[in-house]
Simulated assay, not measured.
Amino acid sequence: MNVFDKIASNWDEEPARVALAHGVASAIAENVPLNNSMKALEYGCGTGLVTLEIARRVREVLAADASEGMLSVLKEKIARFGVKNIFPLFTDLTKTGPLDGGFDLIYTSMTLHHILDFAGMLKTFRCMLMPGGFMAIADLDLEDGSFHRNGAPIPAHNGFDRSEILTIMGSLGLKDLKAVTAHEMRRAAPDGSVRVYPVFLIVGVLA
Rank of each mutant, 00 (worst) to 15 (best):
V196K: 13
P88C: 04
R17V: 11
A64I: 08
T124C: 15
D5Y: 05
I168A: 09
L99S: 10
L177C: 08
I115A: 00
R56V: 01
A64W: 09
V24K: 11
D176R: 15
V18T: 14
V58Y: 04
T96E: 14
N36H: 14
E164N: 13
G173N: 05
P190L: 10
T94K: 12
V83Q: 12
R149G: 05
L166A: 13
I154H: 12
E68W: 09
Y197V: 05
V32G: 07
R57V: 00
K6H: 11
M130S: 15
V58I: 12
F200W: 11
I86M: 11
C45V: 15
L122K: 00
L116Q: 14
D144Y: 07
E164V: 12
I115Q: 00
H22T: 15
G48D: 10
L20E: 13
D104H: 12
M38F: 11
Y197P: 10
W11F: 15
L93K: 04
D104C: 03
V205F: 00
L62M: 13
V3S: 13
E14Q: 14
I168H: 13
D104E: 10
I54R: 08
F125D: 01
A66V: 09
K178R: 15
E164T: 11
R56W: 02
D191Q: 07
N150W: 11
R149C: 05
A138H: 04
A63T: 03
T108F: 00
P88H: 07
I28T: 09
F103M: 04
I28G: 04
K39R: 15
H113F: 02
E14N: 14
M185T: 08
A55D: 03
G48L: 05
G159Q: 05
G97P: 02
S67E: 06
I86G: 10
R56T: 12
P88W: 04
G101W: 02
M38I: 10
H157N: 08
L122S: 07
F81H: 13
E42D: 11
K123V: 00
P153G: 06
L49K: 06
T96H: 05
G120P: 01
M130G: 08
